[in-house]
Write a protein that binds this DNA or RNA. Structure first.
Length: 327
DNA sequence: GATTAGGTTTTG
């Protein structure tokens, strides 16, 4: 069979009611897949290209793995077989039969590593060139949204919303609408952490840590629709939690010891229900730049040797927990 | 070849 040659439409040249087109773009907004009221998961995103035209996309796929793996704004996405739809006078893209998506990190110079669950997909030198062109174009566009929300635990400001790249250490169901995720990113949060009471047998992963390690762990309560996403997470997974909120002092939650509600109180992190502002959780691939950086950062010279975190290896790489070699 | 949603902070 001859190799198919794909044609890509510039975003400012999309026509209304196009039955099936292929596009490339830079992600400027996204929501991780969430359950629709129908049969599918729904992803919502917005992309832009060198024409400076921004186009919203709505993707419905029954299988989570068919949704694009978007990690952050600035990621590059290629979509095959989307149709156009007019909504409120603007062209939007919706997936159609045979839809597939491939995404790439957006940093100029980083490896052009396709992220997709497709078992086979077309990728040639033209694709590589397109990705690199979009990266360098986006790099020069000061107005494009950056990854400004990304904040390490060491820089968290109480009350603020932020995106956290971290590793899951342990999780525990608190009640039907709330799951506790215990995470770290290797940096030390300057604020005291709230103490959460959990039955040890309810915890997946270690029920407790050494005092040193405990001081690096953040407690994250995820609510409502995010409880379902949390169910799929495994200790050791590298995660990005989007639109996480740091709450302080008077915050309540299941399993919390009563704390005086005063400014400067201990921190708890909440991932509120809903999908506003892209609230959600995504498992990151081991080889993506943010995870590589997390590992370097965690194990680098910023921490004293005796405080250096011990990262958990991915599931199935050995006899459960292993320690990474330290620098 | 239906349907879903259509960015825009919980209220724990």
């Amino acid at each position: 069979m001859p190799t198919p040659k794909y044609m890509y439409v510039r975003l400012d040249e999309l026509k209304a009611a196009a039955a099936s087109v292929n596009v490339y773009g830079v992600v400027v907004f996204f929501k991780q897949p969430f359950r629709s009221r129908g049969t599918d998961w729904c992803s919502s995103l917005k992309i832009v290209d060198q024409s400076n035209k921004k186009v919203g996309c709505t993707l419905f796929c029954e299988k989570l793995e068919d949704h694009p793996q978007i990690f952050k704004n600035g990621d590059i996405i290629r979509m095959h077989r989307v149709k156009t739809q007019l909504y409120n006078g603007a062209i939007t893209l919706v997936n159609t039969f045979g839809f597939s998506a491939v995404t790439f990190d957006g940093a100029p110079g980083s490896a052009v590593e396709p992220r997709t669950s497709s078992r086979s997909f077309h990728f040639d030198q033209d694709d590589r060139r397109r990705v690199e062109e979009l990266r360098s174009w986006a790099g020069g566009q000061a107005a494009l949204p950056r990854d400004a929300a990304a904040v390490p635990l060491s820089s968290v400001r109480p009350r603020a919303f932020f995106d956290l790249t971290c590793q899951l250490l342990a999780k525990a169901p608190m009640d039907t609408t709330c799951t506790l995720l215990r995470v770290w990113d290797g940096t030390r949060c300057p604020h005291p952490q709230v103490e959460v009471m959990v039955e040890p047998h309810a915890v997946e992963g270690p029920a407790s840590f050494s005092k040193d390690k405990e001081s690096l762990v953040a407690n994250v309560f995820v609510y409502d629709n995010h409880v379902e996403s949390a169910r799929a997470l495994k200790p050791g997974d590298f995660l990005r939690i989007y639109n996480l909120r740091a709450l302080q002092g008077s915050s309540k939650g299941p399993g919390l010891a009563t704390e005086p509600s005063e400014a400067g109180g201990p921190l708890i992190f909440h991932l509120h229900g809903g999908t506003s502002y892209g609230r959600g959780i995504r498992v990151l691939s081991e080889n993506c730049p943010d995870v590589q950086e997390l590992k370097r950062y965690s194990m680098g010279p910023r921490l004293d040797q005796d405080q250096a975190p011990v990262l958990i290896g991915p599931p199935g790489t050995g006899s459960g927990i292993r320690t990474c070699s330290l620098l």
